[in-house]
Structure formats: C-alpha cells, structure tokens
Write a protein that binds this DNA or RNA. Structure first.
Length: 417
DNA sequence: AATTGTGTTGAC
DNA sequence: TCAACACAATTG
C-alpha cells in the first residue's frame, strides 16, 4: 500500500467534452437486504439472476448501496474519492457532477449539463467551485451542505461586494451553515445578528483515555454540564438530546450530540465527537475547553471549543496537529467582529440546535495573519493556500478532510443541519 | 443491527 | 477510469 488514498490532486483541468445527459432513469428499483451479494432470492430461473444484484445506476459516478441508497464517487489518480451517499439517485449524480467540475474543470463530462440554470449562476458556481479546494467541495458533498454553502456565497457575493471587509463573512457564514440541502421551505430571510465577541470561559476538561477512545463520546463533568449545558426536559433528556454546534479555530463547525446517559448517569457528547478527536488528534491528557460568546442578544449563546495538548500552556495545536490552520486565539485576538452568522437556530422536533464556535486559545502566538478562524481574508489567497495544502504538504490534512465522515442520512437535514 | 464507504478486482 | 462486489469499520 502506498499513500493512503485520498488524493488531492493538482488543479489540472482536463477538458473533456460535454455530454448530453443520459436519459433519466424512470424506474425506481428497490432493493433489500444487505451486502452486495444479497439475494432477493426468488426462485431463480436464470433470468431472474439479474434481480439479485443491485441495480446499477444510469448515472456516472453513482453506485448503488445495499440499503437502497446511492453512493457517489469520482476517481482521481487511480483512487476513488467518495462523495457520500444519497437517497436519490439523481442527488448522487448531481454530487458527482459537482465533483467532476471541480476536479476536472468546467468541461468535464457530467450527468446533467449545466450545473446551474442561468449562465450567470453557472458562472458564480464555477467561481465558487474554484474558490474551494477539492477537499472542501468533497466535504460539502458528503455532508450535503454544498447547496447551502453555494447559496450563502451567492448572497454574500451579491449583497456585499466592493466592501473590503466582507470577504471573511463569506467564509464564516459558510462555516456556520446549517441547513441541509433539502430544506427549501422557510428560507433565508432570517437576518443576521452580530456577535460582538466576548468570550466566557466555561470549563476545561482533560480528556481521559475513554474520551478519546473507542467509545466515541466525551463525558462532560456533571457539575459543568448542568451548569452550562442544561438539557431541557421535554425536548431532550429522554431521547436524543440536543445538537450543539461549535466552531474550531480553523473555522470549522463541529456538531455534537449532547445528551444524558441514564445508564452511566452522565452527560456526554456523542455523535460527532469521534470525528473531532480524530481530526485534532486528541490524546488522553489533552485538554478541551468550552467557551461561549456573550452575544448581545443574550440569548444567543454561541459556543466554542478549544483544545490544547497535554503539555499545557504553549504548544500549539496548530503546529502539532496541522488540523485547521492557524491558531488565532480568539481569546487574544477576539473582538474580531467576526460577525453575523446566519442565525438559523431552528429547532427541530425534539432536537434543539445551538450555534457555537470553537476556538483555539493555545495559539495565541504572534501569528499575524490574515486568517481568521482559519479563513483567509482574501479569497485569492484561499485558493492558493488550499491548493498548497493539498499539495504534498497537506496530504494529511487532505486526508482528514476527506475522511471526515459525513453526516449520513438526511436526518441531518432534518436534524437541522 | 444498520449503514457507510473502503478494498479489490476486472472490464473498458 | 469506472463500477461491481464483498465486507470491515462506523454509527445508531
């Protein structure tokens, strides 16, 4: 084995000719069972042999999943890049198209022709694509947040160009982005509130081996949990808990399910936590800190999470673990009016969602960068950086990004992503 | 237990 | 490159 998969390729733009989109597959097949070799098992009369196999997709880059869903994938450098799973075959096909355009250029062969309706939109989308690394695009596809992010970027683009300082908004907004791509209803509208940042340190916890182990959960010390993250009875304590969003120093938003485990009588962060551990390479003994911005609204408690290596004080998470880019400590630099994030704090059914952000306080270093929350202030730069990162140096990071598993299921959408 | 998405292989 | 198939790794 060589490089562990996940290739991040250089931005070569191959040109292929476009293609008439393949005929829409009218028939919906349904499958059952697990495992590719499954069998519906009918009587076999030879001809029926076909029925035991998963139906192939008529779309390029789309593969059937044992459970009836569809996976999307694209190849590059002899390696497969997984684009996620989707309920609808067309969604998967679309995901492939997007990836194809990002990976192979505008003229890449796609399932459906133009990505966007109007020429202008198409233009914007292309720009959007190229302004993000392949890994980012893939990540969005896997998380089903692509559409949203694209929308956001469009808004920012229209609404505030020519205003020097808005570049960052675009990014941060995108990071905060939450609704799944299916959400059509209720829309946009929501204004934005500004988070004039002031951070309140909630508490720290030195993670235990089990916090970073296979259990995929972080135990929140009871006293802290009850004080800072009270679970509301009706909505969560009994079932799924709530989803909390945090943003890390790289500007990445992390969502963890927070709930109470009766069995162990403890408060825990579950879903999503393992990913954080993995990406940050958290080791037992390291410390995670939870913060909250005291926003004007008072009610909108944005949460942040930070972490530092065991050694305490100085080491820089960033350096050590290359995760999310610069460690601009919010604590120090704070007051970066980072600003208005879409306040879509919609709550869904039993699950409540809160917006939070994570910060890396460790690195208060002299970093004087133009990166805020890991985001470059200048768009152009973003690309370069990304592409560099994606070069050899950042292979690992790329990997992480790609592996960062995805929120599967649309539940996410439902769950308020 | 249900699902995802990776390992692999063979066809193109 | 690509998709089919098998199945290990993750999540729920």
């Amino acid at each position: 084995m060589d490089s562990s998969s996940c290739t991040e390729v250089t931005d070569s733009t191959v040109s292929v000719t476009l293609v008439p989109s393949p005929p829409p597959p009218p028939d919906k097949l349904y499958r059952v069972g697990s495992g590719a070799s499954v069998v519906l098992d009918a009587a076999d009369s030879g001809v029926e042999a076909e029925s035991r196999k998963l139906p192939s997709s008529q779309y390029k880059g789309v593969v059937p999943q044992p459970n009836g869903r569809w996976g999307a994938q694209i190849y590059e450098k002899h390696q497969r890049v997984w684009l996620g799973t989707f309920n609808e075959e067309e969604e998967a096909a679309k995901a492939y198209d997007i990836a194809a355009q990002r990976f192979r250029g505008r003229d890449a062969i796609t399932n459906f022709k133009p990505l966007s309706e109007t020429a202008e939109d198409d233009e914007v989308e292309s720009a959007f694509l190229t302004s993000h690394s392949k890994a980012e695009i893939v990540d969005m596809l896997r998380k089903h947040t692509y559409n949203d992010e694209l929308q956001q970027s469009k808004r920012n683009y229209n609404g505030m160009r020519s205003d020097g300082s808005n570049h960052l908004i675009s990014k941060s907004k995108m990071m905060m982005n939450c609704r799944g791509l299916y959400v059509k209803s209720a829309g946009s509208a929501s204004g934005s509130a500004s988070a004039s940042a002031a951070f309140e340190h909630l508490f720290d916890k030195a993670v235990t081996p089990s916090d970073v182990g296979k259990l995929n959960r972080l135990v929140i010390p009871k006293q802290h949990a009850e004080k800072h993250f009270p679970l509301q009875i009706g909505s969560s304590i009994n079932c799924k808990g709530v989803l909390l969003n945090f943003e890390d120093n790289g500007g990445k938003v992390w969502r963890f399910r927070y709930s109470y485990w009766n069995s162990s009588q403890s408060y825990v962060l579950t879903k999503g936590w393992s990913r954080f551990v993995k990406e940050k390479s958290l080791k037992a003994g390291d410390t995670v800190s939870f913060l909250r911005s005291t926003a004007a609204g008072g009610q909108d408690r944005q949460l942040y999470i930070d972490w530092k290596p065991r050694g305490a004080g100085a080491a820089t998470a960033t350096t050590t673990k290359a995760s999310d880019g610069c460690g601009l400590s919010l604590f120090q630099k704070e007051q970066h009016q980072l600003v208005r994030l879409p306040q879509q704090q919609q709550q869904q059914q039993t699950i409540g969602v809160q917006e939070c952000r994570v910060v890396d306080s460790v690195n208060a270093g002299p970093v004087q960068v133009v990166r805020l929350f890991g985001v470059d202030i200048f768009n152009g730069v973003i690309n370069q950086v990304n592409d560099q990162i994606n070069g050899d140096i950042g292979r690992k990071r790329e990997l992480e990004l790609l592996t960062v598993e995805s929120c599967k299921k649309q539940c996410l959408a439902a769950e308020a992503l």
